[in-house]
């Protein structure tokens, strides 16, 4: 005996949604591997293992059915999103600490799947950014610029010993395009001068712009599969574009173009994969638009005027805190009513 409806959408489950999102990340991961070498694969594997272990531990401690919840794929997704946000060539503990904090503190101490207020991957990122700022700036050099293409053996060596024999770390890592731009602008160079540096590509950074394009592709796939709605990514990217265009229009020698902002840093990853996280984003259409706009604006403000080269994590965390309020004030009009919520 069960109550109606007696039939459910075939094949729809939390696990299948998470799997589709993971699948949508694959093109970007492939591009990452192509442009920056094998380090990202090690990072993703380590993040996955840590996420599953931390999830299992917390489920066990909270006396939840471990296998049932472990198979939903949400922990692995958190691990992947964090691994894709931090430097892939890093000591092993960086990704382990970040992922562990994300799952244990940001997710389970807030009530587990569906209950966390803040995006776990972004909490993990923020903790690492604040605790290990130096390590968080060692990004791998694009292979086409590297004097020494790093091998998978060397990646593992660096991961577990923290050093590379016979290779200077500076030979395989460098600052990100956003970081470089920020530093160079503070040295009184103009945007066009800075963008002539070899690290910059046609509109973003070399390699990173291709990865950003792949995030965009994956995001379009999620839109097509109706896993996400257009509201968040469109408002996010539109807000970022408009504010970047405004400042770029005022002084193009000090403010980079909108296209540059769209295709560098975590903009595309954030717009399609992080700001769209169901649990920590608004559920109403208008709420999503407000949320996306807020993240887009904050992202720009932190990037250009703040202390960090990129602002995706902090802008999302700030907006996460506003989600209950946004939802409460953006309830859509109900059928047969004049307004959404009765006072």
């Amino acid at each position: 005996m069960s109550s109606s409806p007696h039939t459910l959408t075939p094949g729809s489950s939390v696990g299948s949604i998470m799997l589709l999102v993971l699948a949508a990340l694959l093109p970007a991961i492939a591009a990452y591997y192509f442009f920056f070498g094998p380090a990202i694969l090690i990072s993703l594997a380590l993040a996955s293992a840590t996420a599953l272990a931390a999830e299992a531990l917390m489920l066990k401690l909270r006396q939840y059915p471990v296998k049932f919840f472990l198979s939903d794929g949400s922990a692995i997704l958190t691990g992947w999103l964090l691994a894709l946000s931090i430097p892939p060539l890093a000591p092993w503990w960086l990704v382990v600490v970040g992922t562990g904090f994300a799952i244990i503190v940001a997710k389970h101490l807030y009530g587990g799947l569906g209950n966390n207020l803040f995006n776990p991957a972004m909490v993990g990122f923020a903790v690492l950014m604040i605790s290990f700022p130096a390590t968080m700036t060692h990004w791998p050099t694009p292979l086409m610029l590297a004097q020494h293409p790093i091998s998978i053996g060397e990646v593992l060596q660096y991961y577990f010993s923290g050093a590379l024999q016979g290779v200077n770390l500076d030979a395989v890592t460098m600052a990100t395009p956003l970081d470089t731009l920020k530093t160079q602008l503070s040295l009184q160079h103009t945007v066009s001068e800075v963008k002539n540096m070899p690290i910059f590509g046609s509109f973003g950074g070399k390699g990173t712009e291709a990865i950003a394009a792949m995030y965009l592709l994956g995001g379009l796939f999620l839109l097509q599969r109706r896993i996400i709605t257009w509201h968040t990514p469109v408002s996010f990217l539109l807000a970022l574009t408009l504010v970047a265009a405004l400042f770029n229009g005022i002084d193009s020698s000090r403010y980079a173009s909108p296209l540059f902002h769209l295709f560098t840093g975590g903009a595309m990853l954030g717009a399609f994969f992080i700001a769209t996280d169901y649990v920590t984003a608004p559920t109403t259409p208008l709420g999503k638009l407000i949320f996306g706009t807020g993240v887009g604006l904050l992202e720009y403000v932190i990037r250009v005027f703040g202390g960090y080269p990129d602002g995706i994590a902090f802008s999302i965390l700030i907006m996460n805190a506003a989600v209950p309020l946004i939802d409460a004030y953006t309830q859509p009009r109900v059928f047969g009513h004049d307004s959404g919520v009765k006072s």
Binding site: S13, V14, I17, F69, D72, S74, G112, L113, G114, N115, T229, Y278, V279, A281, T283, T284, D327, Q331, P332, R333, V334, F335, G336
Partner: peptide, 21 residues
């Protein structure tokens, strides 16, 4: 499973309610 606030329910509700809420 727990509600993950995906909002699919709200997208299909013919009364435009917010079923997840």
């Amino acid at each position: 499973m727990p509600c993950i606030r995906c909002g699919q329910c709200a997208q299909v509700c013919p009364c435009n309610l917010q079923p997840q809420e």
